[in-house]
Amino acid sequence: MAERVDPRFEAELRRGVVQLVALHYLETPRYGYDLVRLLGAAGFQVEEGTLYPILRRFEKAGILASRWDTSGKRPRKYYELSDDGRSVKAAMLDAWKRARDATDGALDRPMKEEEAEAAEPAASEDTP
């Protein structure tokens, strides 16, 4: 049955969340491919073509700060959460928690209880 699930379902589910997880990992300075590896190990298989535009967008928005490290054998660009970025990450985390709790609540509640709640406003409109 699992093979009948649209593969886009999971990808779309993860698309917003991966940004939050990426910001979480960027509390510590990291370079692009390092972040790809970390996200992969956490179960978020993203490739550079997906992650790089996200990092650039965050950098343009001031959520991430960046610097080039030229001390190694070749230059590497490191990204890190900025002060503004920490506020944004906190807001995204709140939004994620709300969505998660709402989803869990809806899925855990028995169906009959939901039908009864849905019928209540109609009944109150009928009564004089």
């Binding site: 390092d34 550079e48 790089y52 070749r74 230059p75 590497r76 660009k77």
Partner: peptide, 16 residues
């Protein structure tokens, strides 16, 4: 700028 950054990403993956 983008060329430099993407080049670095390519190099990172090749190195890995």
């Amino acid at each position: 700028r983008v060329r430099m950054e993407v080049d670095a990403l390519i190099e990172d993956r090749i190195e890995e």
